[in-house]
């Protein structure tokens, strides 16, 4: 299964609506980097509103998505992290440093607009 990636101007939007097994997560990582390369996107919003679990593997993949995208010139904002997920991440000792977050998709887009001035 693949996670759909939508293009909106210079940005890419992803709303994760399926269970994130390891394969889906890795496939998403590859697909997103490929799309950034193809489109020259400068910003990415990954919406996690429907994600009810982030374990250490998914956290690692998401952290890598952020730093790899950064290397390719695209800023990533993670949005909609559920309270329960934020709590379990802290229990796991995972702090996702240097990762930009926002409350929802709309705020995530605003954050990109502010930072990138586009």
């Amino acid at each position: 299964m693949r996670i759909p990636i939508l293009k909106l101007g210079n940005y890419l939007l992803i709303s994760i609506q399926m269970e994130l097994d390891d394969k889906t997560a890795i496939q998403f990582q590859e697909d997103l980097l490929q799309r950034i390369h193809e489109t020259g996107a400068t910003g990415v919003v990954v919406d996690l509103t429907s994600v009810d679990i982030i374990d250490s593997f998914i956290a690692k993949v998401l952290g890598e998505v952020v730093s790899m995208s950064d290397l390719m010139g695209a800023k990533v904002v993670l949005t909609g992290i559920q309270p329960a997920v934020a709590i379990t991440l802290i229990d796991l000792g995972i702090h996702l440093q240097n990762v930009q977050t926002a409350l929802d998709l709309e705020q995530g887009l605003m954050k990109l607009h502010q930072e990138l001035g586009e």
Partner: peptide, 17 residues
């Protein structure tokens, strides 16, 4: 509750992996 459900599901994911 939802937070403990998430804790339990996350713990299971770790040991199963």
């Amino acid at each position: 509750g939802t937070v403990d459900q998430a804790r339990i599901a996350t713990a299971i994911s770790e040991i199963a992996r």
